[in-house]
Design a protein around this nucleic acid. Structure first.
Lengths: 112, 112
DNA sequence: CTACTTGTCAACCGATTGGTTGACAGATTG
DNA sequence: CAATCTGTCAACCAATCGGTTGACAAGTAG
């Protein structure tokens, strides 16, 4: 089962999200399941490289792979992102107050 | 002048957040500015290591450092996290629907 | 002046990343 | 059967990561 501590999970999730190729893969999977070769095509990289990226995403729990006849279907599993979002959200009050201060500043000088 | 592209920014932010020591540093800074040595103490690491982590956070725009007399004050700058949260949030509808489907599934078969 | 504190810089280290190529296994098709 | 398409595995590579130690500059205190 799942022994990963919350910290380990967050490490994996944020690490998975820290690469733009992987973020792009998630974007593509958000519009529906896809095969590995299909995902590789627009990235100008070998299928191997994409396969490794998919493993990183899978280890982070962000996708699932299912053998569908001859091809491998990858499906988005966005739920673990909730953990990341939740972690980030605790800073919301902090950054809102900063944005407010910036807004005040901008307003003060008139907008240009 | 180099204006980091959104992708570069997100790379840096997510990478900064992908390490638990750095996340802990942000947590500590959320309760107020602190000095480097002060931040290093509870982590059982050298000041040098913490200093490097702080540089990663600073490059991601998540903290600012200010020379205050003899010591270096680090302050949280949470606003860039909004970018990360915003990126993640686009998957919210997706994972909500998955949770719904999972609930249906569990309900359907009773518990196994 | 010397001594100490604070933090960075520089070099080094092993482990990990992100990519490559090549071999290969499984399923489909000729 | 052979050929092809699928994707993974294994080895390799340069670059980066996360930590160390040691030297050192700047500021403070005796």
């Amino acid at each position: 089962m799942k022994t990963a501590e919350p910290d380990d999970r967050l490490d994996g999730i944020f690490h998975a999200l820290s690469n733009r190729t992987r973020r792009a893969l998630l974007d593509e999977l958000a519009s529906g399941p896809a095969r590995v070769t299909e995902l590789a095509r627009p990235h100008g990289m070998s299928v191997n490289a994409i396969s490794k990226h998919l493993f990183v995403l899978e280890n982070a729990g962000l996708i699932r792979r299912e053998k569908e006849g001859t091809v491998q279907l990858c499906k988005l599993n966005a739920e673990p992102m909730a953990n990341a979002e939740e972690w980030i959200r605790r800073y919301k009050a902090f950054w809102n107050s900063q944005i407010d201060r910036l807004a005040d500043f901008v307003e003060e000088r008139g907008e240009d």
